[in-house]
């Protein structure tokens, strides 16, 4: 034991190191086997050449990728103006549903109906209905723009989800925190603003991150009502070239954004779980 320590490691650490090395070897060889299977066996499939030519066509990829990247800027722009609006609206709805003031009772009912409806309808339907429907009432330009109404559809839908998450966060704050705030003489509003909300928001950040990632992908639904963002641009290329590679290019661009974001959200969740235990 003593001379183990002299070598800088206890007996247990040496044993654990051995186990770890073995686990690493097993993991490495099984991973290699799986990748070998994918990269050797799939190309041996009879249809592989056709699939490769129509999904993984390097020539098409190089030709379309820069334009896809350019179209993706529109996705980012839509995302950037929707996300803050969703956060604010979602929070307001969550607060309205929490309110106990009888004067705000209609708000509470509306809030409940709102979240039920918008969470129950597929986003793409909402995009169509609001994106074509509202301008169809005869709004003049630029107020009938599909950018405005399509974004509003996204905002309304996502705010419904975000509101529910905020609400669950608010409810997860122990009720004695409200009592503690009230016992100090703080008003309901102050207690919500300074005591409940900061804790609630912190708790739901990982869940809201996941909503943002979902939103980032659903921005593409605006293409149904006209805006040429990356999904539509890829579709145009696909049609003109009768080749699906542009979709693969679009997927690559989406992944480049969503994978780091997803990893980060997972990291936040793991961190929060660690803190709680």
């Amino acid at each position: 034991m003593t001379h183990d320590k002299a070598a800088g490691k206890t007996r247990r650490q040496i044993h654990e190191d051995r186990l770890r090395r073995r686990a690493l070897r097993v993991a490495a060889s099984s991973t290699a086997a799986v990748f070998l299977a994918i990269f050797l066996l799939v190309p041996m499939a009879p249809g592989w050449d056709r699939v490769k030519a129509s999904f993984f066509n390097w020539e098409v990829f190089v030709k379309t990728f820069p334009k896809l990247l350019d179209a993706f800027k529109l996705d980012i722009a839509i995302f950037l103006w929707c996300a803050p609006a969703i956060t604010v609206l979602g929070l307001l709805i969550a607060l309205a549903r929490d309110t106990r003031n009888p004067a705000l009772f209609p708000l509470r009912i509306l809030g409940a109906a709102y979240t039920d409806i918008f969470r129950g309808v597929p986003v793409v339907l909402t995009v169509y209905l609001i994106g074509f429907g509202v301008p169809g009432l005869g709004l003049p330009r630029p107020w009938n723009s599909p950018y405005i109404w399509g974004s509003l559809a996204l905002i309304l839908t996502y705010a419904a989800y975000v509101a529910e998450i905020f609400r669950s966060g608010i409810e997860s704050v122990h009720k004695s925190q409200r009592a503690a705030a009230a016992s100090l003489g703080l008003s309901d509003g102050d207690s919500m603003r300074f005591v409940i909300l900061p804790q609630a928001i912190r708790r739901v950040i990982p869940a809201q991150m996941n909503m943002l990632i979902a939103l980032q992908k659903d921005v593409a639904l605006l293409s149904f009502i006209g805006p040429v963002e990356i999904f539509r641009q890829a579709g145009v290329f696909k049609s003109l070239m009768a080749n699906f590679t542009p979709y693969v290019g679009a997927a690559v661009i989406f992944l480049a954004v969503t994978i780091p974001a997803t990893r980060y959200a997972d990291y936040l969740i793991a961190k929060q779980n660690r803190e709680r235990s």
Binding site: S176, A179, G185, L186, R202
Partner: peptide, 20 residues
């Protein structure tokens, strides 16, 4: 109730402090 609560302080068994 608020003005009264200012004149009467209260400490609870647990979950007293605001953790943030």
């Amino acid at each position: 109730p608020q003005p009264v609560r200012r004149r009467i302080g209260m400490v609870f068994q647990s979950f007293n402090l605001f953790p943030h």
